[in-house]
Design a protein around this nucleic acid. Structure first.
Ligand code: MN
Ligand code: MN
Ligand code: MN
Ligand code: MN
Lengths: 223, 223
DNA sequence: AGATTCATTTTGACTAATCAAAATAACCGT
DNA sequence: ACGGTTATTTTGATTAGTCAAAATGAATCT
């Protein structure tokens, strides 16, 4: 069985490669940063993961998951996101606090428990943050969404995902009605000032930095 | 934070000391066996737990939990048994398979999740095996029960606890109507042959070894 | 009491995971 | 094509946890 450490490396390689261009190598620097280890540690680990056939390591360039590594990573990610969903939907925990819990639980639950959680929750497609939950068959939705920093202005939008796990940001998003499911409109965007203004249906306008706006993924409201 | 290893050592010291005489030292041999490590490993660990103030180590004699060690051990045991209860009552898993799951989950859930599970389950007093769940305040029921090997014969009894976690034995107990809640009577007991015969209300008699019978704890049926 | 047995501790070695700091290779701008 | 900047890898050391096997102490049995 893969250790928690190995699972974390694989999961983060998956997340970083999903974030980057298709087929691109994940550089060691980014991986080390994501795992909060020093670069040399990531290199050492990369060598051993490559020996185990879980990743492909192009020295000095980066790493990529093998088919087997991807399978393991998707399983861990599925556990992570289903656990978050369970903690919020069943235990009624706040969506801003469940990430660190899931970070540990993802390594502790069996596939059997995973399946039962999935059934209990009604086979959800996304977790409380709108992050897609890999299917039992290992399919991970790659649907690409606009963000408050890039979407069309003036038209009504539905928030579908918040790509940040810090409690601070999640609290802020919730407090300001920017949690998944909410409806908003972008009323202004100033690229040079790096500022985005949004408005809730009947609310006061809210200003966001481009960086913050880029973390709120939206889709045009059907209608 | 205590590592999983430390938590396991403390939990097993607690279980062994509850099993033995009050105030008695837990010998290293038993501890090593319970943890499935070689005796030297247990000794090494005992020294470091003693340094951390979690146990008292009388070299060549055994170990005992300090107040702080007991507090940690009870918290882990509470997590273990509440997790087992959750897995059986909510996820509908078989009582014979939940122990190994809980063995890992007990180290992964926070006190926050623990409290919410406890509330979700309605503050249960015992887990699916009848094992008492330590209270949030750290009280562990020490109620002592008769077993099928020691109880009065002929009179109707209620099974209250099964003190074995192997799937084999639990399966056997369930298949033969000896799970907690069941009603039985001891129809015969031959100490020299080491055999106990029990009968379910309207069932065929069942023969058990004294060793097996000693693992089924019972209480006289109120009437 | 003395010798034997048994449990416990010690010693030396190993694996997984990590860091600090030095060495090295790739990249980039001129 | 060269030199400098930056990312990556190497090297040497550390910590937690473990085992095998030798050494030691406690207990038991004549
Ligand atoms: Mn994790
Ligand atoms: Mn999430
Ligand atoms: Mn455990
Ligand atoms: Mn139990």
């Amino acid at each position: 069985m893969a250790t928690s450490t190995v699972e974390n490396y694989l999961k983060h390689i998956l997340l970083l490669s999903e974030a980057g261009a298709a087929g691109a190598l994940v550089p060691m620097g980014g991986l080390a940063a994501a795992l909060a280890v020093v670069p040399g540690t990531a290199t050492t680990m990369a060598k051993s993961l490559a020996d185990a056939g879980l990743i492909e390591h192009r020295p000095r360039h980066g790493v990529r998951l093998t088919a087997e590594g991807r399978r393991v990573a998707l399983n861990v990610l599925r556990k992570h996101r289903l656990v978050e969903t369970f903690l919020v939907n069943v235990l009624k925990m706040d969506w801003s606090t469940v990430h660190p819990e899931a970070e540990r639980l993802e390594h502790a639950i069996s596939d059997e428990v995973l399946d039962r959680l999935d059934a209990l929750l009604g086979h959800p497609a996304t977790d409380p943050h709108g992050d897609p939950i890999p299917s039992a068959q290992g399919k991970l939705s790659t649907e690409v969404h606009a963000t408050l920093a890039t979407c069309a202005t003036a038209r009504p939008l539905r928030v579908v995902r918040v790509t940040e796990q810090s409690a601070e940001f999640l609290h802020f998003a919730e407090k300001n009605g920017l949690a998944p499911g909410a409806t908003v409109r972008v009323t202004g965007r100033n690229l040079t000032a790096g500022l985005v203004t949004v408005k809730k249906n009947a609310g006061r306008p809210l200003a966001l930095s481009l960086a913050a706006a880029g973390k709120i993924l939206v889709t045009p409201v059907r209608g």
